[in-house]
């Protein structure tokens, strides 16, 4: 049992990195517009299926890894402009309900196009083997996943802190009316921000398809842990989403090792404990989001 703890911890980190990146996308959208995007998992699944179709038509995995999320972003921005945008001025639960409807439709549409059962989607042969780091052996694909997710998170952090656009985005989270009054087109911010969230979801979707499998509901299976991640990390905090994701990933993988039946419940216990000690979540800011 003990010798499994190391590899299982690593698996937990990989899983946690997925939760973190999905939660980051959710948080980006939630922080700026107050929209709980229930269709987030559907965009992950979409990117996964698109990559599957591309690879099975003969394009390379590397091309699909970038192109599939980008197509998902285009779909996402169209959805945001046409369907979500009219709801920004209304109570936030309307957009929650609307995106829930979208995810129901998406699930059925995927079933129509790609069939009700899972499809096989395997990573390229270059990532097949395993790498030994001396004390432990890791599957190459999982290491690759971790690297890509870290790069994505660092790129996001740099974008938000080092570019003018990122600066405006963060300012708009604080006070979007003031930003609009200062001459920034906030509608562009909303659209780009939504697209950014979907892009993160898309990358996670393609990678998850290779590791966790691909079916009409596979994205939605990651959605619930991502919600818990946001709550544990604290709403409004992107850093919290990263920490929360890793915590949950480790909690789930360790309980899977010792008490398999309690693997999902463990994240709720973690969430309850965190909320009891810190009602705002680990890094949540006082005063934001009621």
């Amino acid at each position: 049992m003990i010798e499994h703890i190391g590899p299982q911890l690593f698996n937990g980190l990989v899983l946690g990195a997925f939760y973190a990146i999905v939660a980051l996308g959710l948080s980006l959208i939630m922080n700026l517009t107050g929209t709980i995007n229930m269709a987030h998992g559907s965009f992950m699944t979409l990117a996964g299926y698109l990559a599957f179709t591309m690879v099975s038509r003969g394009t390379s995995f590397w091309f699909a890894l970038i192109a599939a999320p980008l197509i998902a972003v285009i779909v996402g921005v169209i959805v945001e402009r046409t369907l979500v945008r009219p709801l920004y001025k209304r109570e936030p639960f309307y957009s929650l309900l609307m995106t829930f409807g979208l995810s129901l439709m998406a699930e059925e549409i995927y079933r129509l196009i790609w069939g009700p059962n899972g499809v096989p989607f395997s990573p390229p042969h270059a990532l097949d083997g395993a790498a030994s780091l001396g004390f432990m052996v890791f599957p190459t694909f999982r290491i690759f996943i971790v690297v890509v997710l870290i790069v994505a998170i660092v790129a996001l952090a740099l974008f938000l802190t080092r570019t003018r656009f990122g600066l405006r985005l963060r300012a708009a989270v604080q006070d979007s009316e003031m930003i609009a009054a200062l001459g920034t087109n906030t509608q562009v911010l909303y659209a780009v921000n939504f697209g950014l969230g979907i892009f993160l979801a898309g990358i996670a979707g393609v990678l998850a398809a290779g590791m966790l499998g691909l079916s009409p509901t596979s994205g939605n299976n990651l959605l619930m842990p991502a919600f818990v991640t946001v709550i544990i990390g604290g709403m409004g905090s992107l850093f919290g989403s990263i920490v929360g994701g890793l915590l949950i990933g480790i909690a789930i993988s360790l309980t899977t090792l010792f008490i398999p039946a309690a693997s999902e419940v463990s994240m709720y216990i973690l969430m309850a404990v965190v909320l009891m000690v810190r009602p705002r979540g680990l890094f949540g800011e006082e005063g934001i989001f009621g």
């Binding site: 939630m30 107050g34 709980i36 936030p92 639960f93 929650l96 619930m224 919600f227 818990v228 946001v230 709550i231 709403m235 999902e264 419940v265 709720y268 969430m271 009602p279 989001f289 009621g290």
Partner: peptide, 19 residues
């Protein structure tokens, strides 16, 4: 909690019994 935080919590906690 109120507002969307309440929404998020009720979705997440509601799912405990499902699992």
């Amino acid at each position: 909690r109120r507002g969307i935080y309440f929404g998020l919590l009720s979705i997440a906690f509601g799912q405990v019994f499902y699992f």
